[in-house]
Design a protein around this nucleic acid. Sequence first.
DNA 1: ACAAAGATGCAACTTTGTTGCGTAAGGGGG
DNA 2: CCCCCTTACGCAACAAAGTTGCATCTTTGT
Lengths: 169, 169
Amino acid sequence: MAFLDFNHERFKPGFEITSTFVVTNNYRMKDTEITNLLHNANLRVTKSRKEVLQALSETGDQAISSNEIEQKLSEIDRITLYRILKAYEDAGLVHSIADGTGKKKYAMCSSNCSEGDHQDNHVHFYCRVCDTTSCLNVVIPTNLKFPTNYLVEEQQFVVSGICKDCHNQ
Amino acid sequence: MAFLDFNHERFKPGFEITSTFVVTNNYRMKDTEITNLLHNANLRVTKSRKEVLQALSETGDQAISSNEIEQKLSEIDRITLYRILKAYEDAGLVHSIADGTGKKKYAMCSSNCSEGDHQDNHVHFYCRVCDTTSCLNVVIPTNLKFPTNYLVEEQQFVVSGICKDCHNQ
DNA sequence: ACAAAGATGCAACTTTGTTGCGTAAGGGGG
DNA sequence: CCCCCTTACGCAACAAAGTTGCATCTTTGT
Ligand SMILES: [Mn+2]
Ligand SMILES: [Mn+2]
Ligand SMILES: [Zn+2]
Ligand SMILES: [Zn+2]
């Protein structure tokens, strides 16, 4: 529940973020935006927490590992970072992807996610060349027929291969 | 690339497996079947390798971790097991699933998989109650529209929630 | 039966992730 | 602005997954 769309009206200067947001691009959040985000999620505002959100907003639709965040920030404690990421996931601010590489990747959530309910209905792409994982603007189909009596709570669709950047050269 | 269907004609006693197989159920492979499988895959036949295939065929559509296989066999070396599983994956005999638990799960491949090309077009289900991952007889739709210039090589669709057994009680 | 190619087993290591606990900091009430 | 309770941080210690190197054993084709 927060907004993050580089070209969206709300992001014209002077506009305050309030609730819903959608990640569609790299965007460096302003300090007040981050603070509001944390307030709305009932999370205490600390230096580390702000920096982590900052880092995640900068990478936009590119999901990054805990280790990558750690290196971007360089001052943060590794264990604290794990706990922050867990808190963000629980709060519905961030979603994680198991892309098959063995490490979780994290990205900002879109508007359809909320506390404890990650309606993460977009496809993720893992590029084996540049070793990056990104959130694609491709929606997971909802017409799948499951065997009876399965209770579906979450879905993760990971496609891997070669991304557009690595493919074009 | 090999066949494994409990009720399939080929599995009536006296029938020899040759190439294509499909895993759909628990089935304890015969020694000669396993040996043929390894021969066809150009893999040397060793005690450990046979036991690992045996173990995987027994679990059927339930994908298990390296650690679980290790415990089933109890004599195998942990590192050797990793290498065997990698060899099987490379050979297209076995596919692995990243179900979000942090450990890879392994299951026998179906007929549409071949060396280096895992057309793993079925959905996997992770049950958070009994902590099991299984291959569902649900096919991933092929009508997804990807952004241009992405080269799709593999797909993994993991659905999580509560499985039929845990849900019915 | 021999030799080359390949598989195994062990040690040592890396990386990811968790847990416990004392200390520091955030935020609401006064 | 200060107090105090709650929560977050930071460190140590640990657990578990997975990798690499290397010497030794096994498989397999000749
Ligand atoms: Mn995503
Ligand atoms: Mn499967
Ligand atoms: Zn790429
Ligand atoms: Zn279950």
